[in-house]
């Protein structure tokens, strides 16, 4: 199992420092004078075989601005498919009923994507801003087995962990995202973390959870084989978010998978299995 960051220890150290004084009122609102950054286009797009391509285009805003996302309406989105055809995604904001995700642009046909296929994205607006990105679909890595085990606590406090096993292909550079949803993938994932094969290339991975699942839970375990740029984007997002509120952390810039703006453009490749935790 790969270790990606030591940020956990920084958070831990911060908790240790504050623990004795948690009861004191040591926080207060303050006014801050922040530098003004130019507004950039922010893109979020996850292509998936068999699904209609959709993406979200917003703008970056000052941190203390209104929480409502700024959605530019003058954006043109072009998606170049693996066969070289270019499809223009129309501006048609909506909510995906399956994922409950908001999107601003949508295609009309379901996508055909196979491992190794490369797609290109171009996002332009009338102000001259242009965001481009390229993504290749990784090979699917199947889940070998799903295991669970209960703790030794009394029945009313009994919980299980889940172990996901799979074989990492030979060759350093593979990255994975494990998500476990309870009951439906529309809800927020119970487990969501990334690993890479930097230290155990070509071996059989076993990704575990803590004791957190109850008897009777229906779990949807998804193993994404993700490309390196997407992995780095996710890491940088975590780092950037962790740095807000952690005095031991060095703020990190976002490693976008697109150029000319911020955000992510990738093709999903995953295996999903269902696991029902039985009564012990």
């Amino acid at each position: 199992m790969a270790i990606n960051r030591l940020s956990f220890f920084r958070r831990l150290s911060w908790l240790l420092l504050l623990a004795p004084l948690a009861s004191c009122d040591l926080e207060q609102d303050i006014d801050v004078d922040l530098p003004a950054l130019p507004a950039q286009l922010a893109v979020e797009c996850y292509l998936e075989n068999g699904e209609i391509p959709r993406l979200t285009v917003t703008e970056t805003v000052p941190y203390l601005a209104s929480p409502e996302p700024v959605v530019p309406t003058d954006v043109t989105v072009r998606l170049t498919l693996a066969n070289g055809q270019t499809e223009t995604l129309r501006f048609f904001p909506g909510i995906n009923p399956v994922t409950r995700k908001a999107y601003t642009h949508t295609g009309t046909r379901r996508l055909a994507a196979r491992p190794g296929d490369t797609f290109r994205l171009e996002v332009t607006d009338t102000k001259g801003r242009r965001v481009t990105g390229t993504a290749t679909m990784p090979a699917r890595v199947p889940i070998d087995t799903l295991e669970y085990k209960f703790n030794d606590l009394p029945p009313e406090r009994r919980e299980a962990y889940v172990l996901t096993r799979f074989q990492d292909p030979v060759g350093v550079g593979n990255s994975y995202l494990l998500q476990i949803h309870r009951d439906s993938i529309s809800d927020e994932a119970e487990v969501d973390y990334d690993v890479e094969d930097r230290l155990n290339d070509g071996t059989r991975f076993a990704l575990g959870t803590s004791f957190r699942f109850d008897p009777g839970d229906t779990l949807l375990v998804t193993l994404y084989h993700i490309d390196r740029p997407f992995f780095l984007f996710r890491q940088s997002v975590q780092d950037a978010r962790n740095a807000n509120g952690n005095p031991f952390s060095q703020p990190s810039s976002i490693k976008s998978t697109v150029e000319g703006g911020v955000g992510v453009f990738t093709v999903l490749s995953y295996d999903r299995k269902q696991l029902i935790i039985p009564q012990p």
């Binding site: 950039q40 917003t58 000052p62 996302p69 995700k101 809800d187 978010r241 911020v262």
Partner: peptide
Amino acid sequence: PAGRFAVQDIYGENLTAVPIY
């Protein structure tokens, strides 16, 4: 962080504010 943008992630309806430093 002087700026931010929103990320929804692959699934889920929650918007996450990502800081830009």
